[in-house]
Write a protein that binds this DNA or RNA. Structure first.
Lengths: 206, 206, 206, 206
DNA sequence: GATGAATGAGCCTTCATTCAT
DNA sequence: AATGAATGAAGGCTCATTCAT
């Protein structure tokens, strides 16, 4: 229980100040305990940090969205996937920022991070392959490349604008979801044009 | 001259250890001088850092590639742009990594970073608009969104795999340039199919 | 307890070398501990300094002397007050010197210092007013001005000669207490002359 | 000439920031030269400081006022002396503050300072003795003690309030000159009361 | 006369970590 | 389970001073 409190406090501190910026003192104080107690529960700062990051991922969200997809048109499904991804990142912006920073810095974390990316990419790839079998997407497309492209685009959008003002962010998000994504998918369909009913559905779900 | 030596040493140290990780002590030692001399040339650590980052940017490369584009088919030009972008990042991987980290962390740098992104995006946007006027790309596409999409994809590729092994990286790079980019562009052409001669040209320039 | 040891050591160091002159290193070494431990007990150098000065003041001595005054002739009481003041300053000469210096330098301390001066002046003023009501001192004298004059004279004596040799100091002190003070008070009495028995009492108490 | 410019610049810097607070860099910059040039003209910082302080003293003012005294009533003359003293201090407050601090700190300076005090006291003592011979002041008073008392009072007034607001300072100065000084002198006259015409003259000269 | 380069020593402060209780 | 005391190492920075030119 104390352990959990410590993890919670550490999470908030790390998110706010980053790994280096958040001192054990800060974390201990935020949890209302002594610095020494932190060491009672965690070997050291790195270990505490590892425990902290074992709790956040886009994976379950992605899985849920794909599970609930049913027979919906893939344009709608992929739109939903990317929208959820962006919203998740934006809502946990400071946490995400910290993740990005530390995953870039710490080689151990880097591997963890790539595992996450590959997991998500694999799931999305499987979905795209299904659509290829159903004859919605062209069979000659490399499904994994498409999945990586879509997630990468979304990630880079958050990266560059995730900390911008609400108004700026909303504009970018809209343009991305309603324009860039359909544009990137357009060449993928067996039937070239995006059916008009799908375009309309964006105005409901956005 | 000493100044330049210091900047060089700082660049290497910052690239290797990040802003916080590289101490003035480290930098001075790496340059073979006293810490105090660093302060003789630079107001403080932040200022030194600023001087260091004022030396690396994709902007001039992008400009050169677009200037030299001439009448080449846009598929070829954009391929070249993204290839150069990826190669530049990969060749300065540790520097790029540091850029990314510090630009995420320091609000001042974040603005600087977004300015860079916008600059590059604007240049690429202009090129795409020209192709729209020439009737190569569909006029109903949002040129800026396309530019952002392309650069974002490339950035996220480097982000996730920029530190991977040479083999892994080469695979990803190839697949991205030869498959993902043409795929993303496919829906953009007025004439649907990428002319076969262009596809062939990839095998020469890659 | 360690806290107190640190304050003691700091007091000696500050007294000897002044605020700037006494480094945390010095203080820690003098107390036989690490620099870091100083920061365990005190937020920073300024805070440590504040704690040090919260322990020396003339106020309690003045209050005691006035409380014990009873019906003694004011000449005797004021003589006692100024004598105690001078002795206190002389006994803590280096501390007093440091006080003076830092209170002149640091604006925050300056206010603190003036508050001390005003407190002492106010207490002495009250005593003089009582003597006015008793008809010993002329009613048309400004009691506060008198109090300020007396303390000011004593202060300036210490200021100019507080660090002189023992012999020189004793001479100045004697002359001040036995001559200057009675002289300054002479014009104050309703009955002009200082009663001879008081003059004699000086030779006992000095 | 450069030498003088340096001294001037140093004076201003020392006055503003004190000995420790004013760095050679500050002084050199204020004079528009290199730090190294300061060392071309002055052995070291202490030497520069010594050169700076060889230029300010109350002595000449005091001498002038006493020379111009003529047959004026001593109450008026002493009033003038103290008024000039206070005004001089107040007008050069930051310089005076620095003088005080450094004279307290540096033993060499302390001796220099006391020499100044003794010089002024001696001059004033002589004037008081003349008044004793003329039969204005009581012959049994210790003239030197009186002189020290008067200058000490003025000094301590400046010390405690010299940095107060203009309004507060004016109030203190007025009360001191019109009330405390006459009060302190009252017991000194052979003829007890201050002649009324002198009291009136205060309202002109103040 | 004047400068720019260079330094060694020192300062205040922070931090992760340990240990006896 | 919890704490207070304690530390070694390091970090950013400033300063008086020297010296070759």
């Amino acid at each position: 229980m104390r352990r959990q409190q410590l993890i919670d406090a550490a999470l908030r501190q790390f998110a706010e100040k980053g790994y280096d910026g958040a001192s054990i003192r800060d974390i201990a104080r935020a949890a209302g305990v002594t610095e020494a107690l932190v060491y009672h529960y965690f070997r050291n700062k790195e270990h505490l940090f590892e425990e902290v990051i074992k709790a956040r991922s886009f994976a379950p969200i992605l899985r849920r969205v794909l599970d609930e997809a049913g027979d919906a048109h893939p344009a709608e499904v992929l739109h939903k996937v990317l929208q959820e991804f962006l919203d998740m990142m934006r809502h946990n912006a400071s946490m995400a920022r910290m993740f990005i920073i530390e995953f870039m810095r710490n080689p151990v974390c880097a591997r963890y991070f790539r595992a996450m990316v590959e997991d998500n990419t694999a799931n999305l790839t499987r979905y795209i392959q299904e659509q290829q079998h159903r004859g919605v997407f062209r069979a000659d497309a490399d499904a994994e490349a498409v999945a990586g492209m879509l997630l990468g685009m979304a990630f880079s959008l958050f990266f560059a604008w995730g900390q911008a003002s609400e108004r700026e962010w909303q504009q970018r998000r809209e343009k991305f979801l309603k324009h860039s994504v359909p544009m990137a998918l357009r060449g993928l369909y067996v039937e070239l044009c995006v059916p008009s009913e799908i375009e309309q559905s964006f105005n409901k779900s956005g």
